[in-house]
């Protein structure tokens, strides 16, 4: 994004709407911190700039990668996949992406509202590959992996985005190993991350894996997303 200082009136509306506090007023003019800016375009769409000083600019590689991971209406031209994540479990009654006995994970780096450098992806993926997780093939993050050891391209590591979702699944008996990775990175990472766990539910059985999570020191939140099984191919 770009703010034309010549016409900026210093009203500060863009400062207010920026989700990552990348804009501030200097000498009564709005200035974007290029490193902090995640190219979400929320200032462009929602600041209601009275003089239209906020402009959308043509981004070059590697900065261009910020947009699809930050701008909710952008598509992933680089990966060929629209949106920040996949359908996950939302269409599982149609796709069977997660079968009985499989557990899905979605680890969203930078959420809620802090943002993350892409280099943080490797903190997880280099450890998760050793466990043998199956990364979601349609995930934009999986498309960034360049080898079987979970590395990403060097030139994109310092690009900052609003959030990235690492999606994968594993057999139930490997859940504890993944939780171990989460515990380890919890102490090291320079941003926040949210963790979601997906499971099929067997009719007339109690909700799955809660006991295992408790044993490992994790508690589920009282709210969840539930697919109610009305979809079909």
């Amino acid at each position: 994004m770009y703010i034309n200082r010549e016409i900026c009136t210093g009203c500060g509306q863009c400062v207010i709407v920026c989700p990552v506090q990348a804009i501030r007023l200097v000498d009564n003019k709005a200035v974007i911190n290029e490193d902090k800016c995640v190219e979400c375009a929320i200032c462009y769409r929602n600041a209601e700039c009275p003089v239209k000083a906020i402009r959308s600019t043509r981004l070059k590689w590697p900065r261009v990668i910020r947009s699809p991971f930050s701008n909710v209406i952008a598509t992933h031209k680089i990966t060929g996949i629209p949106g920040r994540g996949t359908e996950e479990m939302k269409t599982n009654d149609v796709t069977n992406r997660f079968n009985i006995g499989e557990i899905g994970f979605s680890i969203e780096l930078g959420r809620p509202g802090v943002g993350t450098y892409l280099k943080n992806i490797e903190l997880f993926t280099t450890q998760l590959t050793k466990i043998g997780v199956a990364f979601e093939p349609e995930s934009p993050v999986t498309a960034l992996l360049i080898d079987d050891e979970g590395h990403i391209k060097k030139e994109i590591k310092n690009e900052k985005v609003l959030s990235v979702i690492i999606e994968f699944k594993i057999p139930k008996n490997k859940v504890s190993e993944v939780l171990g990775v989460i515990k380890d990175i919890d102490k090291k990472i320079d941003t926040v991350f949210s963790v979601g766990i997906v499971s099929r539910i067997i009719e007339n059985e109690k909700l799955p894996i809660i006991d295992l999570l408790k044993q490992e020191g994790f508690n589920i939140r009282p709210n969840a997303k539930i697919n109610i099984g009305l979809g079909r191919p």
């Binding site: 009654d93 990472i189 766990i197 009719e203 909700l207 994790f218 589920i220 969840a224 539930i226 697919n227």
Partner: peptide, 29 residues
């Protein structure tokens, strides 16, 4: 109706000191 698939949330981890106060988070999230 049945519960077919569930997506639990385990909450937020990492550098939580970067987050705004809970009262603000209740709205932003």
């Amino acid at each position: 109706l049945n519960l077919h698939t569930i997506h639990y949330s385990l909450g937020v981890f990492g550098k939580k000191e970067l987050l705004p106060p809970d009262k603000i988070l209740e709205i932003t999230t």
